[in-house]
Design a protein around this nucleic acid. Structure first.
Length: 479
RNA sequence: UCCUCCUUAGCUCAGUUGGUUAGAGCACCUGACUGUUAAUCAGGGUGUCCUAGGUUCAAGUCCUAGAGGAGGAGCCA
């Protein structure tokens, strides 16, 4: 008999139909005459209840049906006589596909800590929490592609291995096929990269932006969605060494178009989650509410679904860096010296505590900060006429901080070349990037969205290691 | 990389100013009961107290070093 997915089965009402379901046991509840098995196959967060009549013939069978075991169940779909579910399956035959010995199987029907489950990353998909996150993650991936596809964008696969060491976005992972026990040297005693696979130093990409710009300057509207690698020794709940980044790049867009695009995109994908993942969001919301009970009233955050709707319903606050500095300088925590870094004046880099103050205390909604001092931003950003600032835009979200970083790009060859020289970025490694400003240059803009940071916001999870299946962080590469 | 905190049963955690035999809930086993909802009730015993040293009559508890984890900061998405 063909297997029916539990998601579909739960919606059926054709009682007495013969069906087959396969899945993993979540719990088994004992009884003298009858046993109840909650079975889940990942198609939905909800389980199907399997009802088994106890008799002498199946005592051994039932003994081996423990949490985590996999089953194939033939049975009859019936209306449930109990409360808590509309339909259930009266089992006529159960085959145990794989046992899960209860003394050894670590995922038991109880609350486990997220830290514990991180150490069981191979099995944590089998928990409600991670299955829900995984389903939501899929929907978010799909929503992002849909958003851009619906608007005529082209998806670009930017390279994962790069020969450019000047992307300027952080420490890089080197890629080599050289024998590390016997490194070829030049006559001067330096490592001879001419003998390496590519004949030069190669690294994993830290950004697909530069390649996306090249494509945008022909196809007008493009985006990348790929893995990104940073070898920073970052040990926080917001950083990964390997993460996924979405980088749209649009020719003829200025910074205002760029902000509109970012805001539209975030709202689209959040709406998509509400429209398509409500079961899983409700589960995560309840889970969070349980945790919140242990917190003081003023530390509790907004309920998850309410929070998502709040973002949808309110325009993001657009504020220049200069205005933000004024707000911060006159803020209570600054005057009372509650900030670890006191804002003295214009030019200071904003710390996490300042961004949080603006988003969570002052504006109480997402904020887009623009026009930062050029000294604290990347070389490729469009220089404003004031000679001091660049057309950068950072989208700041409550709890997450910077979820998007972007800018209008400098399209003027001379200005870009001059800025690269000032920042000591070697032109010879970036000649191809500069040539786009030499031939048919146009104003353009783009940004990078950290996909896992979006996932943090949508799921309400607190640690980025719990919204990606196999997180890569310093000293962590088990799975 | 820096600061702070944590590591006790399979899991979640308690363990007093250093003091006798280290505890609870869940899971597991036995029994009862029952169309149950992480079923319930009764009984059963979990152990390298992270590791290695040290102080002490006595260390889960104090000290030193190491390992692992968490939170915050920096870097950033």
């Amino acid at each position: 008999m063909k297997r029916i997915e539990i998601k579909n089965l739960l919606e059926r009402r054709d009682y007495n139909a013969q069906i087959n379901v396969k899945g993993w046991v979540r719990t088994k509840r004992g009884s003298k005459n009858v046993a109840f098995i909650a079975l889940n196959d990942g198609s939905t967060i909800n389980n199907i209840q399997i009802v088994v009549d106890r008799n002498d013939n199946n005592a051994d069978l039932l003994e081996n049906i423990n949490t985590g075991a996999s089953l194939s169940v033939d049975g009859i779909l019936v209306e449930s006589t109990g409360t808590g579910q509309a339909v259930e399956v009266n089992a006529t035959n159960i085959e145990i596909l794989g046992k899960a010995h209860p003394d050894e199987y670590p995922i038991q029907p109880k609350k486990h800590t997220l830290e514990f489950l991180r150490e069981k990353a191979h099995l944590r998909f089998r928990t409600n929490t991670f299955a829900a996150i995984t389903r939501i993650r899929h929907s978010m991936i799909f929503a992002i592609h849909k958003f851009f596809n619906d608007r005529g964008f082209y998806n670009i696969h930017s390279p994962i291995i790069t020969g450019s060491d000047a992307e300027g976005a952080g420490e890089m992972f080197q890629v080599t096929t050289l024998d590390l026990d016997n490194i070829p040297r030049t006559e001067e005693g330096e490592i001879n990269y001419k003998k390496d696979f590519f004949g030069k130093i190669a690294n994993l990409t830290v950004s697909g932006q530069l390649e996306a710009e090249l494509a945008a300057l022909a196809l007008s509207k493009v985006y990348t969605f790929g893995p990104t690698f940073r070898a920073e020794n970052s040990n926080t709940s917001r950083h990964l060494a390997e993460f996924w980044m979405i980088e749209p790049e649009v020719a003829f867009n200025d910074i205002h178009d760029n902000m509109d695009l970012a805001e539209d995109m975030l709202k689209f994908v959040i709406q998509y989650a509400l429209d398509n993942c409500m079961d899983d969001l409700l589960f995560l919301s309840n889970r969070l509410q349980e945790e919140e009970k242990n917190k003081k009233a003023d530390e509790r955050s907004m309920e998850l679904i309410e929070k998502l709707k709040f973002v949808l319903e309110n325009p993001f606050e657009r504020v220049s860096y200069t205005e933000a500095i004024d707000i911060l300088r006159n803020s209570k925590p600054n005057k009372k010296k509650k900030f670890d870094y006191i804002i003295e004046g214009w030019g200071a880099d904003l710390q996490s505590e300042h961004e949080r103050y603006l988003v969570e205390k002052h504006f109480k909604k997402p904020v887009i900060l623009t026009d930062y001092p050029k000294e604290i931003k990347a070389f490729y950003m469009k220089q404003n006429d004031d000679g001091k600032t660049v057309r950068a835009m950072d989208v700041l979200f409550p709890q997450i901080g910077e979820i998007i970083g972007g800018s209008q790009r400098e399209e003027n060859y001379e200005k870009l070349s001059k800025r690269m020289a000032e920042m000591e970025i070697p032109e010879e490694s970036m000649w191809w990037f500069l040539e786009t400003r030499k031939f048919g240059t146009v104003p353009h803009a783009g940004y990078g969205l950290g996909f896992e940071r979006l996932m943090l916001f949508v799921t309400g999870m607190g640690n980025i290691r719990d919204v990606i299946a196999f997180p890569r962080t310093p000293l962590n590469l088990e799975f």
